[in-house]
């Protein structure tokens, strides 16, 4: 612990990030520019989320890190180790026990509480970026609340595919003002964006921080005749039998056999521990 300042970053950097977080909370969904630092991990591995977590952590915190719902993937394990080493905080894989959850591309299945904070890693914070590449223009569009282009995009989805085909990073409107990219979470998770916990978003390469306070109105964009639908694979989990959690499809052999498992590993484990069984539970338990 003597080798690093608490939570790795120097104090002046943390103050700069903290000021950005406060402004982000005051204007929900607005992307606050910040002077993102180089972190000891490559861009795309959660440098924004790590900086937001570092500025938010207290020594008493218990940190959970997930990557696509899983606690045991490389990205999650290495960020957890990073904060064990540099902040000396407790870590956990259990959603219930965590006070801060850093996440890449999922919101845990368990309902988050008032005393929890969730930090999202964001690759492209600008929801309009793939429609308009110029930052000067997207900034103007946000300032004028000019989001027609986004609706055109969703409309083109319908005219080509018969339905809104956007399945992840589904755009939302926050507190009736800013259109926001909820990071590449599946649209299944969008309804959970109205939650009791504080939500912070960090994009390291793109140098943006934004936030959604608790109990804030978050509406997924849609049309009256094509309402938003939170979709998932139409199967129960093959390990724990849950039929209301988001699933990953796993190819099992060359014959085309497949299984569906919960993407939230902690949720699936706790259900199996409680005795719930799916189609393939027995052979996997061995």
């Amino acid at each position: 612990m003597n080798e690093y300042n608490f939570a790795y970053l120097d104090e002046q950097t943390k103050r700069m990030i903290r000021r950005a977080i406060l402004k982000g909370l005051a204007v929900p969904g607005y992307q606050v520019p910040f002077a993102s630092r180089e972190m000891p991990m490559p861009y795309g591995w959660g440098t924004g989320g790590v900086q937001v977590s570092a500025a938010t952590l207290m020594p008493e915190d218990t940190l959970k890190v997930i990557d696509q719902g899983a606690d045991d993937t490389t990205n999650a394990v290495s960020i957890r180790k990073f904060f064990e080493n540099t902040a000396g905080v407790e870590t956990t894989e259990e959603t219930e026990k965590a006070t801060i959850i850093q996440t890449r591309h999922r919101i845990p299945e368990a309902k988050l509480r008032e005393d929890q904070i969730i930090v999202y890693q964001v690759p492209i914070p600008e929801p309009l970026r793939f429609l308009e590449p110029r930052e000067t223009e997207t900034r103007k569009m946000h300032s004028l609340e000019e989001y027609g282009l986004m609706h055109v995009k969703l409309y083109e989805d319908i005219s080509q595919h018969g339905a809104i085909s956007t399945a992840y990073a589904y755009p939302v409107k926050v507190s009736d003002r800013y259109v926001m990219d909820p990071s590449p979470i599946p649209k299944f998770d969008n309804p959970k964006l109205e939650m009791d916990a504080i939500q912070l978003f960090g994009a390291g390469r793109e140098q943006r921080i934004y936030a959604v306070p608790p109990h804030t109105k978050v509406v997924s964009l849609d049309f009256e005749d094509y309402p938003f639908e939170a979709t998932k694979a139409a199967h129960p989990c093959d390990l724990c039998g849950s039929d209301d959690s988001y699933l990953d499809e796993v190819i099992m052999d060359d014959a085309g056999n497949r299984m569906f498992v919960c993407s939230d590993t902690d949720f699936c484990r706790s259900r199996r521990k409680a005795g719930h069984k799916g189609r393939l539970a027995e052979e996997n338990a061995a």
Binding site: F6, A7, K14, T56, L57, M58, P59
Partner: peptide
């Protein structure tokens, strides 16, 4: 570092 972290939270 620790007192500022508590105060910021």
């Amino acid at each position: 570092p620790v007192q500022a972290a508590h105060a910021f939270r």
